[in-house]
Design a protein around this nucleic acid. Structure first.
Lengths: 326, 326
DNA sequence: TTGAAAGCGCTACCAC
DNA sequence: GTGGTAGCGCTTTCAA
């Protein structure tokens, strides 16, 4: 049905070898080239990537493992990775692993069957894969890159964002502004979340202040949740959380209770997402450079795939993006 | 390096044909089956999907074309499509077309080379592809599904969400509450956006009220934008927009100016996204059933791929999700 | 139920 | 520079 390289060769009066060379920008005499070009244009011929992949072992396809594309942090990551790699001809397969490690493994199997050229894992949760030697064995021969993590395989690049220090600096910022009764809201209890919390605890203890952490599992912070937190927070002058959406919920609740956010009480978030502009006052937030880290991860994977470069480990420092809420 | 079907056959003392039959759940004698099973387990053998794809012409892969995965509406769509099709063994390739039709065409070419089994286009913007006969020609032989659109190709399913009626009903709701000075904020000027605006205009005119539309291109509604809108809106008692994020920005601005949203002035959004919970008062919004429509699109595509079913056209009605802002 | 062999559409090697 | 040909790892006839 669809035309193939044989059809093109026949009509151009040459061999499939020559057509193949043309397709791969190898040396072909100008006149032969011209004839091939014309026939290809005539039929709108596109070489079959599957057949090519079977020979070359590369499908020009990479997989991105993320927890949930609906969360701004992850959709940003997927977006910037796509933006970086699509122009280079790579196709991006997005896998919503839901933070469930057995689901992740299914996705890994699936993309491995497809012979993806590489995998990017977003988020420290994927460190858990180190506990599955059989999974590591499967991916030991293809390049992978993690953000905030590392896998015990041959070719594993990493982009670390110093989350802990980001929260540490944010806490110090509030303390330097004279805040002393600062609480931290921890979303989830995975390693990434507790890592951030540790930054807060460190900063508090350094100044002789006593840290206090609240836990939540609802990122959109239902009223009950934020109200409960507020109930405990009447004596608070600073609130930091590890996710912008949570801090935005806190601001909403504080507004409702009549607190002047940014004056009576400071609020700081994490991610510096655009959503921080949706609340009033706008949200001061730790900027963990999602665009930069995603691009670096993509770039790193590309280099590992194409130039067989050694795995690198890169570090990124966060900034504090100061707006109105602190 | 990796084991293949030949290795399995040899070690199981049978032929590759039989191993292939086993892999595809065809008839194999129990004892042969058992031997094959054991060898496969021993090596953790996974059949190569590329080789399989070359023969079967199916890679069990589908593509989703969306404008920008960072927008909640689209990331929801991608999430629910993945959730629906991944368990069935399909891999989902996400393409951020950026609303640029020539970028879309590049993505289409790319996934077509991969012989994807089908394509889902999210959003009416992809109706524009009808103006490119050469593009239509390329996809005329694979099943496609659009939400809020239709392509002039053989096998094109569609899931329509009646956006226009959703806004129409929302407008009538405000009018029935006694609001008369209702404005509409239109984001973008593509067919989807103007379609929604039309619903507003229809409802206003039916009641003899004069419609008034503001335009914006910034979905996160910078202050300047919302303030400008507000400047013109001092005589307003209702504001409707075609995107939740815009309405949330409006609420923030109104709060700041001292308006009592839900009392002095009603605000209605569109999408009924969870972000509507992030503002105070919480956002009343047209629920366009993104989860349902995404699942239906995925289901429809799957049926077209697997059972060669005829293309269907389905319609979904919106609801008005009433919260505090109206 | 099983095995042999052709073929899917390419790339890459070898000889010319 | 070009053409012939052997695979890549599967599925799918066709015979047995």
């Amino acid at each position: 049905m669809a035309v193939n390289i044989y059809d093109i060769a026949r009509e151009a009066g040459t061999s499939i070898s020559t057509v193949s060379r043309f397709l791969n920008n190898k040396n072909v005499r100008p006149d032969t080239k011209k004839r091939i070009e014309e026939v290809i244009a005539k039929y709108g011929f596109k070489p079959n990537a599957i057949a090519k992949g079977l020979v070359t072992k590369s499908m020009k396809t990479i997989a991105v493992m993320i927890v949930d594309i609906r969360l701004p942090h992850y959709s940003d990551a997927a977006f910037f990775i796509d933006k970086e790699l699509s122009p280079l001809g790579y196709r991006v397969i997005v896998c919503n692993t839901s933070g469930d490690i057995s689901a992740s493994i299914k996705y890994i199997d699936s993309v491995l069957e497809l012979n993806v050229d590489g995998i990017i894992f977003i988020g420290s949760i994927f460190n858990e894969l180190n506990r599955y030697p059989d999974v590591l064995a499967k991916i030991k021969n293809i390049p992978v890159v993690l953000t905030n993590g590392r896998l015990a395989v041959n070719r594993c690049g990493a982009v670390y964002v110093d989350d802990q220090n980001g929260i540490y600096e944010a806490t110090k910022y509030l303390i330097n502004k004279g805040r002393t009764r600062i609480k931290y809201i921890q979303y989830n209890s995975n390693s990434s979340a507790s890592n951030k919390a540790t930054g807060y605890v460190r900063a508090m203890k350094e100044r002789g202040l006593s840290p206090q952490i609240y836990f939540t599992n609802d990122i959109f912070g239902g009223y009950e949740q934020t109200e409960r937190i507020l109930f405990d927070c009447r004596d608070v002058d600073g609130i930091i959380s590890g996710e912008d959406l949570i801090s935005i919920g806190v601001i909403r609740a504080l507004n409702k209770e009549g607190f002047k956010v940014g004056t009576d009480v400071d609020v700081v978030g994490f991610n510096a997402s655009e959503y921080g502009e949706l609340c009033s006052p706008s949200l001061t937030s730790v900027d963990n450079k999602i665009e930069l880290s995603s691009k670096m991860a993509a770039q790193m994977l590309k280099e590992m795939i194409e130039s067989n470069k050694d795995a690198r480990v890169e570090e990124i420092k966060t900034d504090l993006s100061i707006k109105e809420s602190a």
